[in-house]
């Protein structure tokens, strides 16, 4: 408490200002999150909620294979989507940071972010138009005579979900990498070449390690939210492409089993958080001394 006694006026004002958004986030984020944790230990009894403490929901998730399967599939899809987006995004971020004239950088970033802001639902749906049975790809390939029958492995399965999600999250992956690349002192690269490294080995030994914080950021900012998407698997996944988010949505909105849905949401969150923490831990040597 002694610390607070010596707060400057400026600090007091800054605390007061931050109070409003903080209270808002507490009421609309912390309290509701607490509520679903509580709910996950209760059970649904037809129309009412039985508030006796029980781990029944968690046991059910553990026992029925369907939840495990969905969770596994979700994590796998998110993992692949993350790997694909980050790998595809890195060269673009590198290109913009190192090869685009400074005055043109913001226009490139702007072009990349625009699709991200435009009507998500319709964008996902458009992939259906592209990949569908009568879709752009199939009708195009048929007309060109490359195939005789429409391809079916590109819609209503996990592949389609991955393609669509990778497309949707692309800008998310580019920005954090770009920001870190921009901060790299260019004289470090010259120093490395001066010390006898080739351009490519300079990239491997200097640029890449220095940009790892951005890569880690990109991985997290893609991996975590993709778990929560139920639109893409619903529209693109078919029966075999449903994910855990669809199950959570079903429990809440169709089966009216909020406690089980809450438990599923918490399990999904815990898995994502655990994987993210492990990932950050594995990359800790790159993150040291940075924020």
């Amino acid at each position: 408490m002694a610390k607070f006694a010596t707060l400057t006026q400026d600090q007091t004002r800054s605390i007061k200002l931050l109070g409003l958004p903080l209270v808002y986030a507490l009421l609309l984020l912390a309290v509701p999150l607490g509520a679903i944790v509580l709910f996950s230990f209760w059970t649904q009894d037809f129309m009412t909620v039985d508030t006796t403490f029980t781990t029944a929901n968690y046991r059910e998730i553990y026992d029925s294979p369907i939840y495990g399967l969905l969770l596994q599939r979700s994590l796998m899809v998110s993992g692949i989507v993350t790997a694909v987006t980050v790998l595809l995004a890195y060269p673009v971020a590198y290109f913009i940071s190192f090869h685009v004239h400074p005055s043109k950088k913001s226009i490139w970033l702007f072009l990349i972010t625009i699709p991200f802001w435009t009507s998500y639902l319709i964008r996902v749906f458009l992939w259906k138009v592209i990949l569908g049975y009568n879709g752009v790809i199939n009708s195009g390939l048929l007309q060109l005579g490359i195939i005789d029958e429409p391809l079916t492995f590109i819609l209503y399965n996990v592949n389609a979900v991955i393609i669509t999600l990778a497309h949707a999250f692309a800008p998310f992956a580019i920005l954090p990498i770009f920001v870190v690349l921009e901060k790299i002192d260019r004289s470090l690269l010259e120093a490395s070449q001066d010390l006898g490294e080739s351009k490519f080995s300079t990239f491997l030994r200097v640029t890449l390690p220095l940009s790892m914080p951005g890569v880690v950021g990109a991985v997290l900012i893609v991996f975590i939210p993709t778990i929560g998407d139920y639109v893409t698997p619903e529209l693109m996944g078919g029966a075999g492409g449903k994910l855990i988010a669809n199950m959570i949505q079903t429990q809440f909105l169709q089966l009216n089993n909020a406690p089980l849905g809450a438990a599923l949401a918490i399990v999904a969150m815990l898995c994502v958080t655990a994987i993210s923490l492990i990932f950050v831990f594995l990359n800790r040597k790159y993150l040291r001394g940075r924020t």
């Binding site: 400026d10 800054s14 509701p32 999904a268």
Partner: peptide
Amino acid sequence: MSDFPGKKGITGFIMLPLVLPEIIVAVAL
């Protein structure tokens, strides 16, 4: 403005929805 003890943590918490899966926010609310 000036930093005070805990400012980083509070700001981080307010920024949390940026990385939280939207479905979690939705079901919690």
